[in-house]
Simulated assay, not measured.
Amino acid sequence: MRHKSLRFGKGFRTAFAVRKMQAAEMVLAPGDSEGDADNRHRGADQWLYVVSGRGVAIVEGERVPLKAGTLLVVEKRERHEIRNTGRTLLKTLNFYYPPAFGSRGDPIGPGRQR
């Protein structure tokens, strides 16, 4: 068993990985975004759960509103961007299958970005 208390500090930070799954926290300030029209994970699905805040996900050109309690799955190879459109921090918990990032947030393995 492993456990960790998440801090949800600004930016992207991996929590840990087990076997073929990885958890990470991402916090975006108002007006900030992560990704762009070419951002995609070559071999990893990304499950994104909104802890707090408001934003929008743009996945393959489709806009999905984000708010606390929203669960979104971005499948491997789908182009995507996450934007904070609110006035407070957008805090998300993300799961990658398989792991897509190293401990410093750098893309790794089959899940790495393309």
Rank of each mutant, 00 (worst) to 15 (best):
Y96F: 15
R77W: 00
V50C: 07
D106W: 03
A44L: 07
H41N: 11
H80W: 11
Y96A: 00
A44W: 03
V56L: 10
V73C: 13
W47T: 10
V64T: 14
G69C: 01
L28K: 00
D106E: 12
S5D: 13
H80T: 08
G9A: 15
K4R: 12
I58G: 02
F12H: 00
K91F: 06
P30D: 06
H41E: 06
A57Y: 00
A57H: 01
F8G: 04
R87C: 00
G53W: 01
G111K: 01
V18Y: 13
R77G: 10
G43Q: 06
P107M: 06
E25G: 02
L6V: 13
R63C: 04
G31L: 07
P110E: 15
V59L: 04
H41I: 01
M21V: 15
S33R: 11
A17G: 14
G86S: 11
W47A: 11
V51W: 07
D45Y: 09
L90F: 11
M21N: 08
D36H: 07
N84G: 04
G53T: 02
K91P: 06
E25T: 01
A44P: 07
R42K: 13
T92H: 06
M1C: 10
M1D: 08
Y96N: 04
A44D: 08
L28V: 09
F95M: 09
R87M: 05
G31S: 10
P99A: 07
D32G: 05
R77Q: 15
R114W: 10
Y97A: 15
E60Y: 05
V74M: 03
I108W: 04
L48H: 00
G109S: 05
Q22M: 09
L66Q: 04
Q22R: 05
R2K: 14
L72R: 00
G102Y: 02
V64K: 05
A57L: 02
V51R: 08
A68N: 11
N94M: 03
D36V: 08
E75V: 12
N94A: 06
V74N: 03
R83L: 13
G86N: 08
I82A: 11
S52E: 15
G86C: 10
R42D: 12
V50L: 03
G105A: 09
P65N: 11
A17C: 08
P107A: 03
T88W: 04
L71P: 03
Y97G: 14
L28W: 02
T70N: 09
K10R: 14
R13C: 05
L28A: 05
L93S: 00
G35E: 05
N84K: 01
V18P: 00
P110I: 12
Y96C: 09
K91W: 01
E60R: 08
T85Q: 09
L28M: 04
F12G: 06
R87V: 12
R13P: 00
H41L: 07
T14V: 07
L6Y: 03
P30R: 11
Q113F: 12
Y49F: 15
H80Q: 10
V51I: 12
P30N: 05
R83N: 08
R19I: 01
A100W: 01
I82F: 12
